[in-house]
Amino acid sequence: MTNSSSNRSNGGSSVWQARWALFRKSAAANWALFAENPVGLIGLGIILFFLLLVILHPILLNTVWDPNVYNPINGFDPQSPVNPAPPSARHLLGTAPQGQDILSQLMFSARNEFILAVLAATVTVTMTTTLGAIAAYYGGVIDNVIMRIVDLVIMVPALSILIVVSGLFELSIVQLALVIGLISAFGASTVVIKSQALSIKVKPYIEAARVAGGGDFHIIFRHLLPNLMPIALLYMMFSVTGAIFSEAVLAFLGLLEVDMSWGIMLNTTRNLGFILDFSNRWYLIFPAGLSITLLSSAFYLVGRALDEIVNPRLRQR
């Protein structure tokens, strides 16, 4: 017993080196699989495109764009006093009803979406894997409590809960991300991950780890969780899709206090009655509407491509 534990501490770094090498190898193999699938590549391409917008925005504001004119929240262009204005050389996507540059709004909002996406996804993944692993590992009362909470959460659509919550508390993007992450952490994906964890729990190496004196904590975090990661990653993609969509809907319904987002842009368009003026005011509708659609479907597509890697049954045709 002492022997094995001392081994573990001595060989720590080499174990991690070995793990890293393994990880790199499997990542390369999985990337090859992923790259075979045009669906995933399209999704990844769209995500990278929006990421580029996020990075470019502050650079543009510091160089070619006059911050007074191009500020996404309260910018105003004295040279174009009549707003909203259609696309021009100065404003590639036109200006909003209050005079802001639409392209700048679009780029600025993309940053919010990524903050939201990354946060919500992180919360979802850590919580679903931990909850799923704990429910599967301990079973009994703990499992029951977690599963009853899941029952409650999937009882009503997440959007209706979010509507009520955002009416009760004025949520910032960060808080919203936490709430969305929490809701999807107790969603259907936990059930799937739990069943996955149950199948891992009975594998010989878990028993071996227990015999070698590994505590519950050690087994859950060293053996169970790493094996749940691939499938959790998959659900993370779908939860990001949901997060972007929900934020946009709440903002569109006017229930969210954020300074700017694609949903807010559409909300303004709707409140001012431009929303059906497709022929003259398309630039108030489509840039924002399509951005929401594209970015959330991009994560969905990546999720589907990952799905084919995680569930090889889908791959062979």
Binding site: F252, I285, T293, S296, S297
Partner: peptide
């Protein structure tokens, strides 16, 4: 299928309306 599944619902509604 994927478009209908992922399109921003209000956008779809307004497109149909129009």
């Amino acid at each position: 299928g994927v478009t209908l599944f992922t399109i921003f619902t209000p956008l779809l509604a307004y497109i149909l309306l129009w």
